[in-house]
Design a protein around this nucleic acid. Structure first.
Lengths: 352, 352
DNA sequence: TATTTTTATGTAATCGTTCCCAATACTGTC
DNA sequence: GACAGTATTGGGAACGATTACATAAAAATA
């Protein structure tokens, strides 16, 4: 059950050359006569010779492969970011291999170590919700594995980072809800250990502050498993609705939170009296009932930027010491879900 | 910028043993004295030794890695199937690496060849819309690369296959629409080169036939790019609506077709007079306006089954000659989008 | 013609690991 | 005391490709 392939040795034996001659002929070295080159190339073509990248990786200690670690490819943000990553990588001659952490620190570590030991030339990571201990990443980074963080970044490792202006996105969404007349705006978000959670919380609070609304901690719900456990989110919403200080609007972060929240509200409330806005990169927000107001992130561009920076690091002759953090702007797309009802009829669609 | 790691040689030098002794000690060979084993293992632990899988792959010609090729991870069906694949693979000690073909034959070939040359132990493939020429796959298969097809399969290669009963799913959805009283049911589907397209078309026609409705070819629209090109789908719908024989219901295959179709209908028709049902594995079908009737596929199980069969092939001592094609049952989930309107109000939610 | 330069090819080491085949030393057995 | 048996370790080839170095033959120069 083993794959039999043609090797340089086979060609050398067949043509009665040494392996080095064949190797040089195949790469078109100037020191090989035209005649020999032609013979070798023709025979290689005929036998469908393909160089063995494993042997090359072993020798050269590089693989022209980029490893990607994300929490969930089913998440639209990540699948779009991956498309961005691939668009750059393929053009520059790199392959991309993708693994999922499922929001688990353990799985993330296994994935990273698998990538590292298989000689990926660099790593693109968005940290999992469960990740607390970054020591294994630090160690690999210090040993010389180039890595770039995107979306869920960390300040503990000094390298390139690409992210969206989460604080601004949260600020805009929250302010928009306030301007629509909502006063008790709940916030359902992910694990507090994530950079994006903190930044979004920050924007949310800044908007409240600007409009002289006192933040109410009981309206802020953290879901440590990033929506992987549905009950966690549903319980949070139930608590919000049961509490004496019932919210009149909910601002969510992330696709999972947003859709679960919408489903729960749809199920629980006959009169649609709670407004919604959320971070989401779903392509179908406009098809929902009600059409969903979202903060959309430039996921594709984030992936592209991160990949460009990574390849730059990989191909740099001398160690890179000057690191940048790229922060792209989010876009607030206003639809019905966040609009105040006038005369029982929601306002018309707008798009900012 | 190279990763420096501890090798067996380093350990051997430090402890003044030969590499073979160290190698054997590390794998706990019976011929090594307890004392030596202890020394080696302790030192290896201390230095955080990790065997180099690349060297192992080169020597053993296997990598304990499974390659996956799908058209688009952003498609819910595939992301769920991949979760199924991973759930089995990790338990059996295999790593999974994922690549996307973006419905392009060229990209698919590059991905497959990349996997093959990096010594994946086996391949799980769902063919792209654009794939016509399977000769490169056949060749690799004949050379001994184990592969299992799932979802979009082919009859040209004799190996294990796992798919859903597409014909049944299409039949059920179509019959349901007929039973609701719809007579002119359009069908928007993918490339006719795909197995799933043909099977679904077959189920659609069988349902029409059973209820004595003559199939109308002008109501069947093929989108060869699988929804990758939005205009293709929108044009198909426009044509349907403009035609003199306007449909009263549309049956779509695949997530992309279904959501694009819903969006177009929502935009074009003020009175919601066209019913819809579609193949979809989206988790949010119930949130749409109207809630969407879907044929749901057991994507996770399909991934699991395919992976089990593949690992079986990989680990089989003698060449496998007895191949099976597993066909799982789809589930029709009935929601508002496919229900006939009575007195201007749609019927209540049902779930079959 | 003798020497140098150029051209074309071969030899062998390397990457990290495994494993076949010795080689050594020690323990029994007759 | 001679020999077999066993326990433990080392040497070196192999996996596929690249490449510094060596070498041979041919061409150019003195």
């Amino acid at each position: 059950m083993r794959l039999e392939t043609v090797t340089i040795k086979d060609i050398a034996k067949a043509l009665n050359f040494s392996t080095s001659t064949v190797s040089r002929a195949l790469r078109g070295s100037y020191e090989i006569s035209e005649e020999t080159k032609k013979k070798v190339l023709e025979y290689a073509e005929k036998m469908n010779y393909r160089p063995n990248p494993i042997a090359l990786s072993l020798k050269e200690r590089r693989s022209r492969t980029i490893g990607v670690v994300v929490s969930e490819i089913a998440n639209n943000f990540f699948s779009q970011a991956i498309n961005g990553i691939e668009s750059i990588a393929y053009n520059r001659g790199y392959h991309v291999i993708i693994t999922q952490s499922h929001e688990s620190e353990e799985r993330e570590r296994l994935n990273v170590e698998h990538h590292a030991s298989r000689s990926v030339d660099g790593l693109l990571i968005s940290l999992s919700s469960g990740t607390i201990d970054l020591s294994y990443l630090k160690e690999l980074y210090q040993k010389g594995l180039p890595m770039v963080f995107f979306d869920r970044i960390t300040h503990e490792i000094d390298t390139h980072k690409v992210t969206v202006n989460n604080s601004l996105g949260a600020f805009q969404a929250t302010e928009h809800l306030i301007e629509q007349g909502f006063k008790r705006i709940a916030h359902i978000t992910g694990s507090p250990s994530l950079s994006i959670t903190q930044e979004r919380l920050d924007g949310y609070k800044k908007a409240l502050e600007k409009h002289h609304i006192l933040p109410d901690e009981s309206l802020i719900k953290y879901c440590n498993h990033g929506g992987m456990i549905k009950d966690e989110v549903e319980d949070a919403i139930s608590e919000l609705l049961k509490g004496k200080s019932r919210p009149d609007a909910i601002f969510t972060t992330g696709d999972r939170f947003t859709t679960i929240c919408l489903a729960v509200l749809k199920r629980l409330r006959p009169k649609k009296d709670i407004a919604m806005a959320g971070f989401s990169d779903s392509k179908v927000g406009e098809l929902f009932d009600p059409p969903l107001t979202v903060v959309r992130q430039p996921a594709f561009e984030i992936g592209q930027n991160a990949t460009e920076l990574l390849i730059q690091m990989i191909e740099s002759k001398r160690p890179v010491v000057d690191f940048q953090t790229k922060v792209l702007d989010p876009e607030l797309i206003i639809r019905e879900s966040s609009l105040r009802k006038k005369n029982g009829i929601t306002a018309k669609h707008k798009r900012k």
